[in-house]
Design a protein around this nucleic acid. Structure first.
Lengths: 264, 264
DNA sequence: CAGAATACAATCATAAACATTCATATGTCA
DNA sequence: TGACATATGAATGTTTATGATTGTATTCTG
């Protein structure tokens, strides 16, 4: 193993992916450098979103290989998701037509928007939106059609795009499984990526990405769009910290969701 | 296995998901750390919503069902509708692609088809179909998109037709509000009529109309198609009697639903 | 239902890991 | 050569993780 930084970092990355996790001390011993150097290497890799930095070492980024279980995901970081949803909903204005894709975070977004009592049209491929909007008199709900996917409670694919191609929204609120400077927005489902991309392409106003900190830096299987097609990222405090370490387009606004109900 | 906290917590999570539940004492022994540390790990995981903390350990997080409060409206003639649904479902064959429109009778049809355990593709604008098919491994469900109509739990209109125009089914099962020799099939909603018409036009096989006796002879506001585009009417005994008094196309087959479960 | 056993929360002390700053070395380019 | 960027390591306080201790809450058991 050569000792130039790039090579060492590459080897470290390989090791992490192989082992799942590593410690600073072992790496320092193995590469015959100081722990400080190893830490800088790990920070560097983390900044690129390739590994997850932890106390004492680093772990592999979990590249979600399978479609995540919707219900299980719904229970992760519930407070952060609710806070993010509330925050992004505050940007919604009377008369807006919104594209909102599927996912547990955007599910919360729909809930927040529906409770706004503003006249809004929501275009989504999340079937559960029906249950959030059925009480609301203010929401006009347009569902994308297509093949139903049980795991995510959504429809997606080319049939969905048929409908999206007919509608131009003036805002899009997009949930993702991965947010990365190099890989852009990514999801584990090809059809979801296609539908989300169509939504973004048919948005004439701002494109908001909503993502809790556990999505920041993650790369999933299929790319939706690159970050320069995104206008704003709404995330939690921790997510904002991580993003500030990254090299992101200057035009990308970072919005931190203030957890108004922190003491729940 | 490295000894950093993140790695240990990851392994604990894997164990919990694998075993269903764990105890603090066993984990402490297994990872060679104090029970206190294990407790803190579990609290950490619980805070993220990944596990459920219990006294003495932790369990896998229960997948709480989303929105259990779906109530199918108490429909009229429930027994007749169920019988009609069972009857028409018996005509469904392995590999069929079915158009099924929205309505309380066709809702029962979807339920009956889903319990057939046959490999079938259902194309429908009834959003509630999701809740009937989500347990079934055999059903491929394609939802039409479009503007959601709360009263009927369905989508319809020109956006829905976009998708229907792309799909040819080999059977259609159509519920109606009015069945009349002179006026044909009629419904009270213009968009529903349009979507149903598109379904029928894109069916290459048999078109079944399902209608209990209270719909026979009725004329509603908007015409879908005339009776000569229908191949079979599935109705109850009383409905069959009424139809026999009418002048209907010779090609139209009358199928009487035998109420097999009259004492339900 | 009472008492024992266990699990827990709260606090503190210690050690490891960390961030930060500075200094040194190594190379590159003008 | 000198100015500069990069890589590394040492020294510094700070943060985090852990375990021991104590007293409280919960569960089990007779």
């Amino acid at each position: 193993m050569s000792n130039i930084p790039a090579s060492r970092q590459h080897d470290i990355l390989t090791l992490i992916r192989q082992e799942g996790s590593v410690t600073v001390s072992l790496l320092a011993e193995q590469f015959s450098v100081s722990e400080l150097t190893i830490r800088r290497d790990l920070d560097h890799l983390a900044k690129k979103g390739l590994v997850e930095r932890t106390h004492g070492g680093a772990t592999a980024r979990r590249n979600l290989p399978v479609e995540p279980d919707y219900l299980q995901k719904a229970s992760e970081y519930p407070q952060e998701k609710a806070a993010i949803a509330e925050t992004v909903a505050s940007f919604v204005e009377e008369g807006d037509t919104l594209y909102i894709n599927s996912g547990s975070t955007t599910f919360e977004v729909i809930r927040a928007v529906a409770s706004l009592e503003k006249q809004v049209t929501i275009v989504t491929n999340n079937i559960d939106a029906v249950y959030l909007c059925k009480e609301s008199e203010h929401i006009r709900l347009i569902l994308a059609g297509g093949i139903y996917r049980n795991r995510s409670h959504s429809v997606s694919g080319s049939l969905s795009s048929l409908i999206v191609n007919q509608i131009h929204a003036n805002k899009a609120i997009i949930g993702v499984d991965g947010f990365s400077p190099s890989a852009g927005l990514t999801t584990p489902i090809l059809e979801e990526a296609e539908t989300t991309r169509a939504m973004i392409e048919h948005t004439v106003g701002k494109v908001f990405v909503v993502a809790a900190s556990n999505k920041i830096g993650v790369v999933s299987n299929f790319k939706t769009v690159s970050l320069d097609q995104v206008d704003a990222l709404v995330t939690d405090g921790k997510g904002a910290e991580i993003v500030q370490q990254m090299e992101i387009p200057e035009s990308l606004e970072i919005i931190v969701a203030t957890n108004t109900r922190s003491a729940v």
